[in-house]
Amino acid sequence: MLSRVAETLYWLSRYLERAENISRFIEVSWHMTLDQPGQEECREWGALVSTTGDNSRFFERYNATTKKNVISFLMFDTEYPNSIISCLRAARENARTVREIISSDLWEQINAFYHIIEGAGKNQGHVYENPYDLCQQIKLRGMMLGGIGNDTMSHGEGWHFCRLGRFMERADKTSRVLDVKYFTILPSLNYVGTAYDDVQWAALLRATDALDAYRQEYGRINPSNVAEFLVFSREFPRSVLHCLGVAQRSLHAISGTPMGAFRNRAEQILGQLSAELAYTNIKSVFDKGLHEFNDQLQIEINRINDAISRYFFGYDPEEFKEAG
């Protein structure tokens, strides 16, 4: 497969997954503010901006983290490259350059998806009042595109690059969802262990569509169990460990390297990270600090991404020689 095409497919699915996850972030924050006693709207929404890691970009153009400003920033801001509309635009531009590779259905639905958000952007007032409907729609569209990709593309190299991108992105975003909770509770530790705390952890599970699956496994909401589920579950399709496992299988399917071995840098770092997670438990995560753990995780994911780019996308004879 052409390197350029592989890169395009990889980013196409990363952007789609990113758009879907940002809508999940907005939804969880919105739920949290509705349950929030008192008027601390700005803090809740500010926490959301912090999880994106793009605080400085936000304050370049907005003065306060009001609901309206944050939703506008994350959903409709065309100047902000990680907003939903920017992600969808980028996804669509990527899709356009590989239209001959992806299925017609996939292309048409990506195109339609973009037009829906573009249309919603022309009438934002309703979204600020009630972001739920649009967030739901984005989430469902995102999942539908995943399904169309799975059911209409041959599960060959191109599909594996899509899946690699999608699950790398998802691993990163699940760890950031956990961070929403961290940034929210940080200023007021006195909530910890209250009924209100439970509500927030439940909202977090809901944002990752994990509430039902979690209940079947653990029953009661308990912070340690929630974090354990979202990081270490082997079966739940949004948990970090599961995502890295899927990404790893696709990476090895692409290169033909047997699992458990490595022939390039990306395989090496991803293998190390997966193994490390597989042999860690939630207690040591909390000992280290949930946020610090997540931060480290995100840094590792970025390193894997860089290694994938160098090896597969930027055709460089040296990388291939090194790989032997």
């Binding site: 497969m1 052409l2 390197s3 592989a6 190299e157 597969f312 055709y315 291939f320």
Partner: peptide, 8 residues
């Protein structure tokens, strides 16, 4: 030749 994920 074209540049692919498996070389040229």
């Amino acid at each position: 030749c074209m540049k692919t994920t498996r070389g040229l």
